[in-house]
Computed example of a mutant assay.
Amino acid sequence: MTATGRTTLGARLRHALGAEDGMSTVEYAIGTIAAAAFGAVLYTVVTGDNIVDALTGIIDRALQTTV
């Protein structure tokens, strides 16, 4: 293979391997949406009556224990 052929092959390989321009932006957008959705679900669960009552009970028991 000639030097020109190696250069062309190298350029093709670099282009094929690096052809995902813009993918990181989409990945960040999907990750941001997923994180926001997870935060909304977590907020809903944590602020629900059952969780608040359970956490209050745990804290009350912890404060009432004798050392």
Rank of each mutant, 00 (worst) to 15 (best):
residue 60 D to Y: 00
residue 25 T to H: 07
residue 50 N to D: 15
residue 27 E to W: 04
residue 2 T to P: 06
residue 17 L to W: 04
residue 33 I to P: 03
residue 3 A to M: 12
residue 36 A to S: 04
residue 40 A to H: 04
residue 22 G to V: 02
residue 4 T to F: 12
residue 21 D to Y: 05
residue 10 G to A: 11
residue 62 A to T: 01
residue 50 N to E: 13
residue 11 A to K: 02
residue 33 I to G: 10
residue 67 V to S: 14
residue 19 A to Q: 04
residue 62 A to M: 09
residue 54 A to D: 08
residue 45 V to Y: 11
residue 49 D to E: 14
residue 46 V to T: 09
residue 63 L to K: 09
residue 31 G to N: 12
residue 28 Y to W: 02
residue 53 D to C: 11
residue 45 V to S: 07
residue 22 G to S: 08
residue 42 L to N: 06
residue 58 I to Y: 06
residue 50 N to C: 11
residue 63 L to H: 00
residue 16 A to S: 09
residue 37 A to R: 05
residue 10 G to P: 01
residue 1 M to T: 10
residue 36 A to L: 14
residue 49 D to Y: 02
residue 49 D to A: 15
residue 61 R to K: 09
residue 37 A to G: 06
residue 26 V to T: 09
residue 37 A to I: 07
residue 43 Y to V: 08
residue 57 G to C: 04
residue 10 G to K: 02
residue 25 T to Y: 03
residue 39 G to L: 10
residue 61 R to W: 04
residue 61 R to D: 15
residue 22 G to R: 05
residue 52 V to Y: 05
residue 21 D to M: 10
residue 44 T to N: 13
residue 63 L to D: 02
residue 41 V to Q: 10
residue 52 V to E: 12
residue 53 D to H: 15
residue 39 G to W: 00
residue 49 D to N: 11
residue 14 R to I: 05
residue 31 G to I: 00
residue 14 R to K: 12
residue 11 A to L: 09
residue 11 A to T: 08
residue 58 I to K: 08
residue 11 A to S: 08
residue 25 T to F: 10
residue 41 V to I: 13
residue 11 A to Y: 03
residue 15 H to C: 09
residue 39 G to K: 01
residue 58 I to L: 15
residue 38 F to G: 11
residue 24 S to Q: 07
residue 24 S to A: 10
residue 10 G to E: 07
